[in-house]
Nucleic acid binder design. Structure first.
Length: 665
DNA sequence: CTTCACTCGTGG
DNA sequence: AAATCCACGAGTGAAG
């Protein structure tokens, strides 16, 4: 591809910017990119579009680019040397030599610049393109007080659709620019700390970012059509405004409750720690797997507990498979193992420690931050968290979430979950409305097969775990007990969706090899349509080049390993392929539902907004007096005709209203 | 000092 | 012969 950059400029004057906006408005699409810095009150807000401060905006379209500095602090030329105090990791302050730059050119006041940019960004005939556009869109939206309307395009999303197997870390603009255009830039990581780099350097960097976003869009967008991915791409585009809304809204947290919890957990932990040391007769690092192994598995005369390990770690298993002798730290000290030594005080207490420690470090400390610890900055700002959702964070199309991740918080029906989910609250005058799909993965499975016992069960309103348990036990569904549903139904359905073998079944329901194998063969006999369907899926996938399957919305999962002659790899590929159909199908539905919820709220209850999504569950924050209306909207958006028409079995949703997340299940 | 693999444990 | 899908992240410990 040849690059013809006709006109490019650094824009410092309002009149100049007006001209630029005029030129850009003559095209039907443009790419843009934002550079941002931490705001003054908090560290670590650079990645939070609701809070960061935009210091550069660059744009690119056909033969035209513009770079708009909006408050870069330093100029280009070095005019001297100064000293700056910095704290190292030991907390000691040292003076570092730093270059002193000339003052920067006079730049436009940010509000004024955004006033001039408004007609371009709010033009609904012009497509706005970004690489991970939710960040850039969110960053600029706060200056207008509203999110610019679509149409949008996201090159990161596009590249993920075209190549879902690319490592998530290798999905950045720089990676694609190098891979596709052979161009390498930003070797000095300007983007990580723009404010300390000279003006011209950042100008060039910013220019390159939007230019290559644009060129990447030009390159990749036609491939979406070529690979017949228009439909899923359209859904990803339509989802963008909802995602920007979620990122800007964040979620209100009950900080005093978390602070109290932190105190309690810390005290508990110190007590447990003492108990372990006392029982073990020594002090050691309880968080170190290796040291735990020594304490637990060394013979008593060598100071250990003399317990017999029985479960290898994944790494330990690999080591043994390679023909080595297992070492003491090849053995696992996980909860499953520790539970098998109920009479040993050290093991019992370690279990308690791990649980409490995880609650403290993984959630409370992670969110509140640790004072003076640079590695643990607070993730709550003025009582709000702002999770970063990646709409293409997984190969299956599900979201991933981070900083903090709202998707791996203890379930609400556990004591820990009750406590920690209680930390998610509605703002004053508002309520939370949470909608949760019922058995969404099995709904997808039954839909894909299109007939059979699960399919009929859904139409008869019978829980799929009960259907499966009844089949295995050879008795009517209305006589299946709660335990039978759990042990036979839930376990086997899980096994089908994720591709487990007898070992897994035996472990999950705590039975022997014979019984596990009997259950599996009985399942196959009673539910032959599932196995026939799987077989057909793999056959079809293998007939394609590259071998692949597609989800309900047409998202692709390419799987070369399906052709592997090594059983290990081919079998793993089959499990992944099949799971993709189910997990990916569920993700498709959730994305459609989110788009509709967001749209309907905008039309009917503009003060309400989507705030969270956990795979099969969405949360809306609404003025309390509109909560019932929002509940109706959510039920409609999750199960209404626009979605139900895609699925051959009835969808169900459980929707609850509360002041705390913990109350909504 | 940074980066990476590994272990463990949450969620769906 | 070898057999559980998709994530994030805290912490340890070793390698670059």
């Amino acid at each position: 591809m040849t690059l013809a950059v006709v006109s490019s400029s650094v824009v410092l004057e309002p009149d100049h910017l007006r001209k630029v906006v005029g030129h850009f408005q003559q095209h039907d699409a443009f790419a843009f990119d934002v550079e941002s810095v931490d705001n003054d009150e908090y560290p670590n807000t650079r990645g939070v579009p609701a809070l960061n401060r935009v210091t550069w905006l660059s744009m690119a379209t056909h033969g035209m680019t513009a770079v708009i500095p909006l408050g870069h602090p330093i100029g280009t030329k070095v005019i001297g040397q100064g000293k700056e105090p910095r704290t190292d990791k030991n907390g000691t302050v040292k003076m570092f030599r730093v270059p002193v730059y000339e003052p920067p050119p006079i730049q436009m006041e940010i509000g004024r610049a955004f006033d001039i940019l408004r007609p371009l960004f709010f033009n609904e005939g012009i497509r706005k393109v970004g690489h991970e556009i939710t960040f850039d869109l969110g960053s600029v939206a706060k200056y207008w007080g509203e999110v610019p309307p679509g149409p949008y395009a996201d090159t990161k999303s596009i590249m993920r659709l075209l190549d879902e197997n690319t490592a998530r870390r290798g999905n950045g603009l720089k990676t694609w620019t190098e891979r596709i255009f052979g161009v390498k830039y930003d070797t000095e990581n300007v983007g990580k700390c723009v404010e300390s780099h000279p003006f011209d350097t950042v100008a060039h960097y910013s220019y390159m970012d939007s230019l290559y976003t644009w060129l990447l869009y030009q390159y990749a967008r036609p491939l979406i059509d070529e690979e017949d991915l228009q439909r899923v791409n359209r859904v990803e585009e339509d989802l963008i405004s909802c995602l920007v809304g979620m990122r800007l809204a964040g979620s209100r947290m009950d900080v005093p409750r978390l602070e109290n919890l932190r105190g309690e957990l810390k005290t508990d932990l110190i007590g447990i720690e003492g108990d372990i040391y006392k029982a073990a007769g020594q002090q050691f690092n309880i968080n170190s797997p290796r040291q735990r192994c020594n304490v637990l598995y060394l013979p008593k005369k060598e100071g250990g507990q003399g317990l017999r390990p029985w479960r290898l770690t994944p790494g330990g298993k690999k080591w043994v498979d390679e023909g080595h002798e297992a070492t003491i730290d090849s053995w696992s000290t996980d909860a499953e193992t520790l539970k098998s030594y109920p009479k040993n005080t050290v093991a019992r207490t370690m279990l308690n420690y791990a649980d409490t420690n995880r609650m403290l470090t993984g959630f409370v400390n992670a969110w509140l931050g640790i004072e003076g610890d640079k590695k643990h900055p607070p993730q709550i700002y003025d009582g709000y968290i702002y999770p970063e959702y990646q709409p293409h964070g997984t190969v299956t199309g599900r979201f991933s979430g981070r900083a903090p991740n709202p998707q791996n918080i203890y379930r609400a029906d556990t004591p820990r979950g009750e406590t920690i989910r209680g930390g998610f609250i509605a703002p004053d005058g508002y309520s939370l409305v949470v909608g949760d799909y019922g058995q969404i993965e099995l709904v997808i499975l039954a839909h894909l097969i299109g007939h059979g016992k699960l399919f009929d069960g859904f139409w008869a309103g019978i829980d799929p775990h009960i259907v499966t348990a009844a089949g295995i036990l050879g008795k009517p569904t209305d006589s299946v007990t709660k335990d039978e549903r759990q042990y036979f139904g839930k376990t086997m359905n899980f096994t089908i969706v994720n591709g487990g073998q007898w070992r897994l079944v035996a472990e999950m329901i705590d039975c022997g090899e014979r019984e596990a194998k009997r259950i599996l063969s009985k399942h196959e006999k009673e539910f032959p349509e599932i196995y026939a369907f799987k077989k057909a899926v793999f056959k079809k996938a293998r007939s394609r080049r590259p071998p692949h399957v597609r989800s309900i919305l047409g998202r692709k999962r390419r799987m070369w390993d399906l052709l592997s002659s090594e059983y290990k790899w081919a079998a793993a590929a089959e499990r992944e392929t099949f799971n993709f159909l189910i997990q990916g199908g569920a993700a498709d539905l959730m994305k459609l539902a989110l788009i509709d919820t967001d749209y309907q709220l905008g039309q009917l209850v503009p003060d309400a907004y989507v705030s969270m999504c956990v795979h099969d569950e969405q949360t809306v924050v609404t003025p309390t007096d509109r909560a019932e209306q929002v509940r109706a909207i959510m039920v409609e958006s999750m199960t209404g005709p626009h979605i139900q028409k895609l699925i051959k079995v009835p969808l169900s949703v459980d929707c609850n209203i509360g002041q705390r997340w913990s109350e909504c299940h």
